[in-house]
């Protein structure tokens, strides 16, 4: 993924329309052209806010990915529930013969 700027100094190098379009593609969200100015401004103001992180001195600080530094709880790999496909698929927008229907992906 290439963005228009490669520095972290976002206050001086805000993200631009192209960046937003690239991000929106990554996130699989369509953004209408007429909203692009507004979205870009808002994302830039948020990125300016979070850019304050760069002031923090974090040399030798271990990143904290879990609040209790706990490892993942594991359980025995046992079957606890029987087939529930019908109930689970009741929420699907389109199904057929127990399958989820989507637009054709293979020619």
């Amino acid at each position: 993924m290439a963005f228009a700027q490669n520095q972290f100094n976002l206050v001086e190098n805000p993200v631009k329309h192209d960046d937003i379009n690239a991000l929106a593609h990554l996130a699989r969200i369509n953004i209408n052209d007429d909203l692009l100015d507004n979205v870009t401004d808002n994302i830039n103001s948020i990125l300016s806010l979070v850019d304050q992180l760069q002031q923090a001195s974090t040399d030798d600080v271990e990143p904290m990915y879990h609040p209790l530094d706990a490892t993942q709880q594991l359980r025995a790999d046992e079957v606890t529930e029987t087939d529930n496909r019908q109930a689970l698929q009741a929420n699907a927008p389109a199904t057929e013969a127990g399958l989820f229907l989507v637009p054709q992906v293979i020619e």
Binding site: N6, V15, L23, L26, V50
Partner: peptide
């Protein structure tokens, strides 16, 4: 949408 985009940015390569 804003938070998804910011998150996608923060997690993207580089």
């Amino acid at each position: 949408k804003r938070r998804i985009l910011v998150g996608a940015y923060a997690l993207s390569a580089g």
